[in-house]
Design a protein around this nucleic acid. Structure first.
Lengths: 204, 204
DNA sequence: AGATTTATCCCCGAAAAACAGGAGTTTTCT
DNA sequence: AGAAAACTCCTGTTTTTCGGGGATAAATCT
């Protein structure tokens, strides 16, 4: 029996690409597409595909949130994240929210087919590059505590230790300690370089 | 006579999408595709299309550079930038390097057709959203001098005024002045907030 | 229950940045 | 050639950061 595939992506070209790709595949049945989260949910009320290929960036709702919502309502539908961004945080969130796979948009036809055939069996599929990045990132990952994240953000807002202390109702000394620990964790010699990497690595 | 179209994009799905889209257009002739800059240049040695649809992000060379190279060697070929990113700096650079148009990947078939029909006449085509963003960005744009950019980058590297002064062979006082002017231009009260916006707005 | 992590607080002193305000010289544009 | 912009340098003062310490209570994990 053919695998029923649905796709959600606001990029018209990608939808066309997938459609064209799957056209000649016998064990794949294209059941439709949506260009935003809302119409995807509307479609699911009428029928459920076996697999949803889901972009992570959409106009009305992020794929991350849509993924959770779909999985809550229709647990039997398998979801494969589809994205240009090989970014560990996105992948992790998709998986956390119930996605079974993650494939980059520069994937080959074979890879996409393999991904679908894998997840439909209940297994997980991550494209090679994604798996690589995740592994690499997990090794040299900076882990911040809740409080440190708060302080980091306020520092990046341009607030002084004094101002942060008042805002968080803690002592200046405490803020200073957090600041020191942040600098150490980021291996930065001052806030300028710390904020730079923090923004680049999406901490802020 | 049909417009000869070539596409360079490392995203397989996008190539498939475009191909599928153009298939039924009578005045469009698909002459081929490449998935990286090198094979694009190789193709151009054998024949020149009327239009190249060019992704800005590619594995071996950025579309920005490829655009310049192609335009130098084959000035009669029109180039349309193709990207997911609606980012003013990219668009500007593509245009500066000789591109005649810029279209987002979530464009409709009609928009892409219009873009091609426009640029082939020698006119410029920017997709609506892109034009909007450019206009919006030009209004509240922070303009930095060469020296200020240098200093900004070194600040973000974590260097002190003293270190920067030595590196650039200027006085500490001068670095301090640049720093002051930078803070004023960014409307920031310290480097932390300045670096944050600088990174976010792609100055770094 | 014991160990680890997290969050809190404190001191000191040197270094650096931020703030204020002025001023001369060289490029660049018109 | 003249104006504007960019780059350069200066003196001071105040504020903030940064690099060392060390310490205690509470939460979390094993």
């Amino acid at each position: 029996m053919a695998i029923k595939v649905f796709i959600v992506d606001d990029h018209y070209l990608v939808i066309e690409g997938i459609r064209s790709l799957l056209q000649n595949e016998k064990n794949i049945e294209w059941v439709g597409h949506a260009m935003n989260a809302e119409s995807c949910l509307a479609f699911l009320k009428t029928q459920q595909p076996d697999i949803i290929l889901m972009d992570i960036s959409m106009p009305d709702m992020s794929g991350i949130d849509l993924c959770r919502e779909v999985k809550e309502k229709y647990p039997s539908v398998f979801i494969i994240g589809l994205s240009t961004f090989n970014q560990q945080s996105f992948v992790q969130k998709m998986i956390d929210n119930g996605a079974s796979g993650y494939v980059l948009k520069n994937a080959s036809k074979e890879e996409i087919m393999e991904a679908m055939n894998t997840v439909v069996k209940g297994k997980q599929y991550l494209s090679f590059e994604v798996a690589q990045t995740i592994k690499a990132n997990q090794d040299n990952k900076i882990i911040l505590t809740r409080r440190e994240k708060e302080v980091l953000e306020l520092i990046a807002e341009g607030m002084t230790n004094n101002e942060i202390a008042h805002k968080l109702f803690i002592s200046i000394a405490t803020v200073d300690t957090h600041r020191k620990n942040l600098l150490a964790k980021f291996n930065a010699k001052n806030v300028a370089s710390m904020v730079k990497t923090a923004v680049q690595e999406k901490f802020i």
